[in-house]
Computed example of a mutant assay.
Amino acid sequence: MSVESAQPEPATPGTSKTDAIRRLRRVGHHGLRMATIATIIAIALIAMGFFRFTDIIADLKVTETPGDVDAIVALTGGYQRIDQALALLEDGVGERLLISGVNPSTSSAALRRATGTESATFDCCVDIGYEALDTIGNANETAVWIRQHHYTRILVVTNNYHIPRSLLELSQASPDVTFIAHPVTHADLKTETWLSDPVALRTLFVEYAKYSLARLRSWSGAKTASGLRADTGGDRPVSASLH
């Protein structure tokens, strides 16, 4: 008696095509699930980082007795920063003030009028820096000024949301100098009201993104532009001076 083994029927072109489509669909569905999970995790991490960033800002407090600083630097971005820095200088905090990142079209006379400060204060103790184009430029402009005057402790006056990135860039440019934050506050982040303010949300999130990129650049050691006006034109940067 002979036994004949069953032979598989040859796959038809239509069956092979259907199987291939099914495999592609399975791969596609798997890939979509993985991408969805990765997106959800990324959004969760960004949200956690953002709210941790706002908590850090909310906990910033003005130093009660900053009398032991050598000088003050105010990073431009609003006259309130300059007003507070000038008030501190007139109260005897530090021996000089650098206003960093001033637009070249703004004269010292215009700053005096806008802040209502006595001319004598500007004439004796205020330096105006016209070189900085951004926060990195502020740090490099301040570093030149610090080296000129041999300062070691600097009070930094800027908006509270700008403090983390400012201190990071300043410390990178002047690692041997101690920087003390003097935050200028526009909104109380201890309450929940800012969450319903689209302008505040946008401002904070943009600053969080910039701060995150600055930290990544610092960690990786990546090089960046100096942020100084003269460097963009190929000229040698000039130090901050009174105009």
Rank of each mutant, 00 (worst) to 15 (best):
A35D: 05
T12S: 15
S196M: 13
H149F: 00
L195M: 13
S212I: 09
S108L: 10
E95V: 14
L201Y: 04
V199F: 06
P13Y: 13
R22P: 01
Y161C: 01
R215D: 05
P104D: 09
N103A: 05
I146V: 14
A209Y: 01
R96Y: 11
A110K: 15
R22M: 03
V93D: 01
K223Q: 11
D55C: 02
L213H: 08
D127K: 00
L204Y: 00
G31C: 06
E141G: 07
H162L: 08
L24P: 02
E169H: 09
Y130A: 03
A87L: 11
A187T: 13
L88R: 09
S16D: 08
I82Q: 05
V199R: 04
T224V: 07
L201A: 10
G233C: 14
G234Q: 12
V73G: 00
G101E: 02
L60K: 01
D83L: 12
A42Y: 04
S226G: 07
T191K: 08
P175E: 04
S119M: 10
P183S: 04
E169T: 07
Q7M: 11
L195A: 13
P66G: 02
L155M: 09
D55E: 06
L170I: 08
A214R: 01
A200P: 00
L60V: 02
D91C: 07
A71E: 02
S212T: 14
T185M: 02
T152I: 11
P183W: 03
E192K: 14
S226D: 08
G28T: 10
N103Y: 04
I180R: 08
M48N: 15
M48H: 15
T152Y: 12
H30Q: 15
